[in-house]
Design a protein around this nucleic acid. Sequence first.
DNA 1: AACTAATTGACAGTCACTGTCATAAACAAC
DNA 2: GTTGTTTATGACAGTGACTGTCAATTAGTT
Lengths: 204, 204
Amino acid sequence: MKEAPAVQRPGLRERKKARTRAAIREHALRLFREQGYDATTVDQIAEAADVSPSTFFRYFPTKEDVVLLDEFDVLAVGAFEAQSADLSPVAAFRAAARAAFSSLGEDELARLRETAELTLTVPEIRARAMDEFARTIGVIAQAAARRSGRDPNDFAVRNVAGAIVGVIMAATMPWSDWAEEAAGSDMLDRIDAALAHLEAGLPL
Amino acid sequence: MKEAPAVQRPGLRERKKARTRAAIREHALRLFREQGYDATTVDQIAEAADVSPSTFFRYFPTKEDVVLLDEFDVLAVGAFEAQSADLSPVAAFRAAARAAFSSLGEDELARLRETAELTLTVPEIRARAMDEFARTIGVIAQAAARRSGRDPNDFAVRNVAGAIVGVIMAATMPWSDWAEEAAGSDMLDRIDAALAHLEAGLPL
DNA sequence: AACTAATTGACAGTCACTGTCATAAACAAC
DNA sequence: GTTGTTTATGACAGTGACTGTCAATTAGTT
């Protein structure tokens, strides 16, 4: 008479894990906001989340990863493949990014902005973001390859993905004396404008 | 009656510092090659270079920086500004890169390859390379701005610089299962091809 | 030769991160 | 329920990168 939902229910254990994970991330982001990233030790986060320091590292391999785990590109890739096939890769990606962003809820957007802020501000995290970007190039290349029926390791495909990530970097990264201008325009708008510019062939 | 060469002679102190710096880097790279990056401790490097660990950190702020100090982009920027003004920014940069590469000596090329290898291989260093790339975007943007008489913070200028760095990343970074192909072609050739592709408008 | 300023080494300390082991809780069977 | 198995957790000890301070040395100067 059990008849328990086989796929549906994650099980108590899984739910507890998810709650622990969320608690750690939540308290970590709060502490970063309150005292700064460097000034916050892993021990403090662990204590605030009421777990042992060991447990912290079981959930996040490094302190940086508390900030860096977005899973957002998965969303974008889904939208990417849903675009009509006659669009150029860049145009398709741009449309996909817009769709993905607008599908986010308020709280998700807020967290995205907060982590983005930290990624831009803290050198350690900014550095680590490189690997994320490289991984993203791979993900985009794979999706573009599927769309166009080419090999994901194809040189041209990878190159397009690289250019996309490059202009996003340029639109996102903090500039020498550019903090004011950046504060004015929205990050997502800047990304969209950068993609539009790339789509148009980077005219000067 | 001194009449010492005012600008010419660096002074004994400076020469000693340069020699110490070179010794540290040399022994560090050798140890990395022999035992791997992670397995090599700063203490070992210091001992091999016959300085104290404290001194190591006075010359290089972090262990990663032993690898990451290229000063190569400065060379490229010089060549960039020497290109004729009717070339597109991308074409000009491509020509400049070729010129800069071919101006390097054998030993400099060897060291460039070795540090590049480490940058691609070791996750820590690869991550840190992000900041270098961001800086490089800035440097390229400044040079491009001077060339075209625009503001270095101009959106389009930055975006072009970002695209250039992006395709270089794509051509340089190691791929999922891509090691074989990469070994075949030369890194510099791949960079040139990537720039050519970008120059042509990224056709698929 | 004497004075000043820079370079260095020794030392102690912090913190991210790793590995191991024993305990306790969740799940699966009976 | 009661058992046995798996998994999450915490306590602990250790490594290594990095920081700060202080005293001794050494290069440059008068």
